[in-house]
Amino acid sequence: MNATILDSFAFPYKVRKSINDPEHPLSLEELNVVEQVRVRVNDQESTVSVEFTPTIPHCSMATLIGLSIKVKLLRSLPDRFKIDVHITPGTHASEDAVNKQLADKERVAAALENSQLLEVVNQCLSSRT
């Protein structure tokens, strides 16, 4: 099961690191935002926990990245799994606030009602570059 989950993170991450960066869009895995060691899966108890590491401590995209990961997991995993997405401890300035937002089912659902936000998330998840 673990392998499938890491497969899911090979989606292009379209937000460029900096303007001068000549690289093409990178995936979260390539940016080391998501790493295999920080993904924990328990198939028996049906839980998945993902820690992600924003590129810089003040990364303004942290919530969006977390939301994208969460949505991707919701779409890619069987219903039985309980999904927990949070920031690797000590890697972001407003860690608690972001974690709280991501853990709140209502807020995630509400965010996905927002068509502008959904558009950005979908763009992050789209396999077409």
């Binding site: 890619s76 502008q116 558009e119 998330v121 979908n122 998840l125 789209s126 396999s127």
Partner: peptide, 13 residues
């Protein structure tokens, strides 16, 4: 397949 069907008809496809 499921990811692609989710994107169907939603913004940002």
């Amino acid at each position: 397949a499921r990811g692609e069907w989710f994107l169907l008809g939603s913004p940002g496809r």
